[in-house]
Simulated assay, not measured.
Amino acid sequence: MELNSQANENDHKSFRVQGGLGLGLNARTSERIAFVLLGLSAMLVAGFVVIILAYIVYNGYSAINVEFLTEIPRMRMTQGGIYPAIVGTVLLIIGSMAVALPLGILAAVYLNEYAGETRTTWLIEMAINNLAGTPSVVFGLFGLALFVKYFGFGSSILSASLTLSFLIIPVIIRSSQEALIAVPKEYRESSLALGISKWQTIRHVVLPAAIPGIVTGSILSIGRVAGETAPILLTGAAYFLPRLPDSIYSQFMALPYHLFVLATSGTSIVKTRPLQYGTALVLLMIVLGMNAIAVLIRRHYRKKLQI
């Protein structure tokens, strides 16, 4: 009996060891497959980005020169440059971010730090989600009715910037909320334990720690502002304007609308093809430049937090 019990126990041990090895091998195999699939997905995305960039650069680099970047368009925009469109795009980015960034951060602070889980908060969250999924042309119609007509700003940089600021506020709110949630609760508790008020804690402790995440949301917003066409088409962008805007109430040219005009106008596509891709390349360079500045700001604050 003792021999039989020992044999049965040895069989059970052997079965457990073999089962454990089998499970271990299966887990390792699944992990390797997952890593391979993730790597292939990343390479596929990076490959598409490289192909798009290479295609734009190949077709547009021949149009890039000093005249193209510093002069106004001429001859139905088949000659000259895109300087007014560059200035208009930069002004749109600055104006919309100046309005949307503080409003978005303050709204995120309220929702994350002050508002509890109430029905009102739930309704606000639903409104933000709906705004984030609203087509940009709807924002353009809203800006046309409110800023251009009702407030009397006319077709101008101000109307277009305010419209685009409403377009990107949901993105900034969401990214700011995620950044605030990521700040450890110990930061808040330690500050409050020292007798510091809640607002001072948020201002001097929570927000500095959340700035890298907030800047990430700003980067996404900059790209969307620079590339939108429908909202500015309805609120201030001009088809052809051979001068720079002299105030925030002036019409303007912008790179995305200029690119749209070149691609859909009745002029010969042979003449405008390099200009189209050159305009797209300049727009891409502006977005990348703005993003690079935002990345440097984020890196600065991350190093500051590590110190």
Rank of each mutant, 00 (worst) to 15 (best):
Y150I: 12
P135R: 02
L146K: 04
L180E: 05
I173P: 11
S136E: 03
S155E: 11
S156L: 00
L141F: 13
F147H: 10
P135H: 04
G140K: 01
A182W: 11
S136F: 01
G133H: 01
F142N: 01
I169M: 15
A132P: 02
I157L: 15
L158M: 14
L141A: 05
L144C: 02
V148D: 00
Y150S: 14
S176W: 10
T134G: 00
V138K: 01
F142V: 10
S156A: 03
L162M: 13
F139I: 01
G154T: 07
L141P: 03
G154F: 04
V137E: 05
R174Q: 15
A132F: 08
L180Y: 08
A182K: 13
P135L: 05
L180A: 08
A145N: 14
F153Q: 05
A145W: 09
L164Q: 10
P135F: 04
T134W: 00
S175L: 15
L141Q: 03
L167S: 04
L131F: 11
A145F: 13
V148A: 04
F166W: 06
V183L: 12
R174C: 09
L146A: 14
R174T: 14
A182I: 11
S136P: 01
F166C: 14
T163Q: 05
F147C: 11
L146N: 07
